[in-house]
Design a protein around this nucleic acid. Structure first.
Lengths: 354, 354
DNA sequence: GCCGGCTGTCGAAGCGCTTCGACAGCCGGT
DNA sequence: ACCGGCTGTCGAAGCGCTTCGACAGCCGGC
């Protein structure tokens, strides 16, 4: 009924309908809705009543055209490789939710549209700003962003963040924090089981920064550390862990930065005769629920996806209003102690010596 | 340079600029780009050259306003609970990629905006159509969609799909297929380890349909079946499996429909003295890579996320062009045999009898 | 009692695009 | 030689909204 009959042309309720119904000019309706000019309380409530009654929603296209703001932001996600999937997902959720709070919608763009995609989106004024995830150290899109005058916020830290706005967990500090925790428990030989090789090769910031943080902290604490990448298959993980403990049997602390690996690692260690945390302590860098759900529950540095998403949107909204903001926000890591870490076994004791 | 200097007002290249540069009318440019009227080859190529040279991209708002098509579709995702995350993600990827192929963009909307969100999106003409994922059997949005005259395609099958367009894996057949496979291998007592309780309670179609398919096929094959829900924590899974085998020690075939459970299940069984597939065969309903990556590699019915996404977009595009299409597409399951299923152990043999 | 300055409202001018009708020129059939 | 019907192009009219300037009324100050 509503759709079939109704207005002659479009079937849509327009601002003119509201104006007519409320007995005011269209511009007055617009001002009531935007709050950009003072409107008397009487008029305002009359207009608002009409808006509600008629179920008026401004036409997005018309609004965008006239105001030069689409009220949409783009979220550029690495939808290609299936890695760190939960992180990406949680992050997207936070972004959408926060953006809605600012009356903005979110356009989903895949990384593989690359720079050309950004260009298109900017030129067509489809969106007012961009959130870029999975930023690589030397990302081709970064120079483009500088040139494009398209407000943007990066999730992650490129090699040269000058002139850009970035948000991320401080992975360097996170790596260091993990090492500090293990060192504090008396572990003297530890290992970092990192992201897949491809991720390092691609120059993905978080992987490199974590590794650097781990190494630096290890030096500082006088702890020996081995770092190795880690693929995502169960068998790959098992092989990697087995080989690691084979070559370095006295490793008693493990930092794992790879969600897909966490489960297999916890399954493999007991199979190798190493109890967690009796013989080997494990600390992960991964989403918190994930760590809480495994068994034993993992000591971890949670990746604050929710917080990062919120911050990113908030910063972007600030930029859209031309407010000055910080260049980068690196969230401090907060280590959560659970059941997977314990004091290092006494020297020479503990299972698995060859 | 491009951004700073250029046109006086907006900095944007408009169709008028292209028209001037090519020495034609704006409408001609429009027709060249849309192909809605015949344009001579000479003119066309001149216009296209100008378009490329000036880097023209039509203003999305203006285009939407004038043509009443936003060239955007909405993708409504269940971003709340972190379940079936990889499936959702792969699906989103396929949707975005396919939509781009039709020159459409994708707006990301969360399920928790609910019916009101749909209403807003429809009324504001932000999008031309909607893709709805995570449809429940008695979804509140389904009646709304019928009323709204907003072209839509559902991923999943509500209880009453009349008048709607739906795409999904035929989970009923998938469940049956798993049972048939196990029955064919001689298994006489099997179990379905399903989705978390909450998913069944919510009336989510795929979970119910799979369970029904499993039960029906079991009947048909004269196989005894136990079905039980399964939470996502490692410990929960372990408990569920342990209890299951405790109560039904002669279960030799397991159907698992819960990505998060697959890893723990494979870890738990050997710990209980049941080898896979020697003592217990496991067949999963989950994304294929996932099954291939675990160890042993899983026999599974892959959820064809990519295919579903592509189909859904294609159907929606058809509807946008007012082409008649099918009401529902249920993709036939295709069982992939790997290393986790084998002939049932001889009666009275096999580990784990109490 | 008049004027300057508010406050609240209106009308009109676009925003950049699509699309409709008009029409100029050209073809071929008669 | 004329006319009907193409083909290819143009100009103008909006699409529904925001925003700018104008201005009517009203206040208080002198």
């Amino acid at each position: 009924m509503t759709a079939a009959a109704g207005r002659p042309p479009s079937g849509q309720v327009t601002i003119a309908d509201v104006a007519r119904h409320a007995g005011v000019a269209a511009s007055t309706v617009s001002y009531v809705l935007s709050g950009k000019r003072a409107i008397s309380a009487v008029t305002r409530s009359r207009v608002l009543a009409s808006v509600r009654l008629l179920g008026y929603h401004p036409n997005a296209g018309a609004r965008a055209l006239a105001s030069r703001r689409a009220n949409v932001i783009a979220l550029v996600l690495p939808l290609r490789a299936g890695m760190q999937v939960p992180v990406v997902m949680q992050f997207a959720t936070a972004v959408v939710t926060t953006a809605r709070g600012y009356d903005h919608d979110v356009l989903l763009v895949t990384s593989d549209e690359g720079p050309a995609g950004l260009r298109r989106i900017a030129a067509s004024a489809l969106v007012d700003g961009v959130l870029l995830m999975d930023v690589e150290l030397h990302d081709r899109r970064v120079p483009l962003l500088r040139e494009l005058a398209l407000p943007s916020v990066l999730i992650g830290l490129p090699a040269d963040p000058a002139g850009l706005t970035c948000v991320d967990l401080d992975f360097h500090a996170a790596g260091a924090e993990c090492v500090a925790h293990l060192a504090g428990l008396g572990h003297r030989r530890i290992a970092l089981l990192g992201a897949p090789t491809a991720v390092y090769d691609r120059g993905t910031g978080f992987a490199h920064r974590t590794r650097a943080g781990v190494r630096e902290a290890a030096d500082r604490h006088g702890v020996q550390v081995v770092t190795l990448p880690c693929e995502e298959g169960t068998a790959d993980v098992r092989r990697a862990v087995t080989e690691l403990l084979d070559r370095h049997p006295d490793v008693s602390g493990l930092v794992v930065q790879n969600e897909a690996a966490v489960g297999p690692v916890l399954a493999t260690l007991p199979a190798l005769g190493r109890r967690v945390p009796g013989d080997v302590s494990v600390v992960a860098i991964c989403p918190d629920e994930f760590a809480g759900r495994s068994s034993p529950a993992l000591t971890c540095v949670p990746v604050p996806t929710e917080e990062v998403g919120r911050q990113a949107v908030t910063l972007l909204m600030g930029k859209l209003r031309d407010e000055p903001g910080p260049e980068a926000i690196l969230l401090a890591p907060r280590l959560t102690v659970r059941d997977s870490t314990a004091a290092a076994p006494a020297v020479g004791v503990g299972g698995g010596e060859r």
